[in-house]
Design a protein around this nucleic acid. Structure first.
Lengths: 259, 259
DNA sequence: CGAACCCTTGACAGAAATCAACTAAGGTGG
DNA sequence: CCACCTTAGTTGATTTCTGTCAAGGGTTCG
């Protein structure tokens, strides 16, 4: 593995505080692999062999049931995913696939479990990571249960432009994926998007332009208790991730789901 | 606080493995309070002062947005809730109210944070607890996003009778609350319940009787990746909780949400 | 160029919410 | 003890939202 990646991983909140030799031990058996686009990395129900860390590219976490699928999150560099399954050594609840050519570091989960048995700092970091992830899913569940499709989309748009000066942004994923994340069909998303033109959001291809933020806010009623802290972008779908440690309600960007 | 409660709490997975003096320190400043029914214990957005442990009675965790409410979980003895908020020292994402006369132990969250800085065993237990809670919410989100109301209800009924010999059970909460948990209106639940008569589930007041389990399964397609491990009951809404440690996919009963 | 795929649009169907009325059970107070 | 009130639950009528099915436009890529 290249030193530059190693350094980058070392700076992740999860690994930053741990002892040098713990880190070395963890990385000793690590793999560094690059996958093409649209490769399924893990299947739900499988046993967790590795903690995954996205170094370049992006990964979709999704869930399947019968013939249906829903995307739960998109993980971007540099973040880990499926931490919880690795910790519990229990079957993955979600599946994962690359959305583009993606570079992943794979840490054997046995090593992971061994190391946080001995390295208290690492255990503390893990606690923080898990608590953040937990809160992320709770917010997602609240979003889905409390708002309708229109309100969710409006809220998403506001999240994506919250702390940027700009009144427009590029949807960072295929619209069908955004639809799935928001819990609607692509057709519904398309129509809903159109209907938002009357309340302040125009769409042009992958670009969304906010024409009336106040009006949008009147629809979405954004709340930090659903949309996350002010500083962060949509953790799950936007998320350039973060070398920053902070609390999920104070950091620059909250960590995406970890599963 | 009475010794019997103390012993019971000590046996919780979260506290069982920690050092005696850590436990004593944690309990030193603990309150033991009994609340009447329908008292709001915490409000969403508030700062977490105490980790709550339900000793007797039951507590609803719910979320609010605009004029809407949705119940996220019901916590029963002996379980803690709002662990994640206490750890992160970040605002509660959910509110909590008693559903009946309820006895609660309150542990100052500053003590909590202090103790797992020093007690590695406790940190490990916290990691396990959080990972379980995380997986619970993921399952809830999957349930909501992947199944429709009818399928969710059928799955709920199957969960409630999964490992019992009996073909019937008593709905442990008001139906309106169950409706909210399942993400539908009370009217919808009532109608959906009725519609399930044709596929194997009769309802008589608070009692649900399964007349054709196979037919119900054909609707619900129960899966451990949504409905939880075989051994457990619906963690959130059923949950007599558990002095058992186990992994959420192996224990007798998974721990409810912790927030 | 054609095939495949994403997105959009339209027409329609189905699911669930809303509004309203009614029943039944439990509690209160005369 | 009974009239009265409140509230949970049910049922019916209707609207609203969202999904489904089908078709067409636009892109990309081999």
């Amino acid at each position: 593995m290249r030193d530059s990646e190693l350094a980058q991983i070392r700076q992740l909140p999860l690994f930053r505080t741990m002892a040098d030799d713990s880190f070395a031990l963890l990385m000793r058996a690590a793999y560094d692999q690059t996958f093409p686009a649209f490769v399924q990395l893990i299947e739900q129900g499988a046993e967790p062999d590795f903690l995954h860390i996205v170094v370049e590219g992006s990964v979709e976490l999704f869930a399947r049931w019968q013939d249906r699928e829903t995307t739960m999150a998109v993980v971007r560099p540099v973040s880990s995913f499926i931490l919880a399954a690795c910790i519990k050594d229990a079957p993955y609840l979600m599946a994962a696939r690359t959305l583009e050519k993606t570079r992943i570091i794979l840490l054997p989960s046995v090593d992971l479990r061994a190391v946080f048995q001995t390295d208290h700092k690492f255990a503390m970091a893990t606690i923080n990571e898990l608590a953040s992830c937990y809160r992320s899913v709770v917010r997602h569940a609240k979003d889905i249960k409390l708002r309708n499709a229109r309100e969710r989309l409006a809220a998403y748009i506001l999240r994506k432009t919250r702390d940027s000066k700009s009144a427009s942004f590029i949807i960072p994923v295929e619209k069908r994926l955004l639809a799935s994340y928001l819990g609607v069909t692509p057709e519904s998303l398309s129509r809903t998007m159109k209907s938002l033109q009357e309340v302040g959001a125009k769409v042009d291809g992958q670009r969304v332009i906010i024409t009336d933020r106040k009006a949008l806010e009147a629809v979405a009623h954004p709340s930090p208790l659903i949309d996350g802290p002010d500083c962060d972008d949509e953790a799950a779908l936007a998320g350039a991730a973060l070398l920053d440690d902070g609390d999920d309600d104070e950091s620059v960007v909250a960590r995406p789901y970890t599963y």
